[in-house]
C-alpha cells in the first residue's frame, strides 16, 4: 500500500457505524469532536498530559490527541456519550454525581473513561490502584479525593 494523504475509514463509535473520508493528518480527537459531533471528549492540553481526550479504542484506554484518526480505521471506539444507556446515567456516572466528583466538569469525560477501563480490569481496586488508574487524567478543581471515592463507590 502506497502512502496516502486522504483515506476513507470505518469505525464503530458507541455501537454506531461511521464511514468518513479524511486527511491522514487528522487527530482522532478532532475526528470524534468535529466530524462526528461527539463533543463529550475534550481537548485540554493537546500535548498528551491532561487526559481530557481519553477514549477507549478496541477496549484500550488512549489519549485521542496522540493518535491519528486513520490509525483507528476498523476499530471499536467508546466515548463518554456511550456510557449512559437510554438517557439514564450508569452506575459510575451516578457515583460521580452522588460523591460530588466534579466541579467544572472539564476533566470528567476523560476521568469517566479511565475509571471505566480500570473497573473492567479490576472489579475492586484499592485506593492506590484507583489513583494509578487515573494518573493520566488531570483535574484542576476537585483535588481528586471525591473522584477516588466515587470510583470506589461505583466498584462496590
Amino acid at each position: 500500500m502506497d502512502p496516502v494523504s486522504r483515506k476513507t475509514i470505518t469505525v464503530d463509535v458507541n455501537g454506531e457505524r461511521y464511514e468518513r473520508e479524511l486527511d491522514a493528518r487528522r487527530l482522532l480527537i478532532h475526528f470524534i469532536r468535529d466530524d462526528l459531533d461527539l463533543t463529550g471528549s475534550h481537548i485540554g492540553c493537546d500535548t498528551g498530559n491532561c487526559g481530557a481526550c481519553s477514549v477507549l479504542v478496541d477496549g484500550t484506554l488512549v489519549k485521542s490527541c496522540m493518535m491519528l484518526a486513520v490509525q483507528a480505521d476498523g476499530a471499536k471506539i467508546e466515548t463518554v456519550e456511550g456510557l449512559a444507556a437510554d438517557g439514564e446515567l450508569n452506575g459510575l456516572q451516578q457515583a460521580f454525581s452522588d460523591h460530588h466528583a466534579l466541579q467544572c466538569g472539564y476533566c470528567t469525560p476523560g476521568m469517566l473513561m479511565s475509571a471505566t477501563a480500570l473497573l473492567r480490569e479490576n472489579k475492586s481496586p484499592s485506593e492506590d490502584e484507583i489513583r494509578k488508574g487515573i494518573q493520566g487524567n488531570i483535574c484542576r478543581c476537585t483535588g481528586y479525593v471525591n473522584i477516588v471515592e466515587a470510583i470506589r463507590a461505583a466498584a462496590q
Binding site: P3, V4, S5, K7, D23, R25, R26, L27, V70
Partner: peptide, 28 residues
C-alpha cells in the same frame, strides 16, 4: 492542533516498511 499535511502508510511487513522509508527522505 492541526498537523502539517502528511502521507500515511501502514505496511504489514518489515521489508515493505523499509522500502517506504527508503523511498522518501522525509519518511518517518
Amino acid at each position: 492542533m492541526l498537523l502539517r499535511e502528511v502521507e500515511y502508510a501502514r505496511p504489514a511487513r518489515v521489508q515493505e516498511a523499509l522500502r517506504l522509508l527508503g523511498a522518501n527522505d522525509g519518511a518517518r
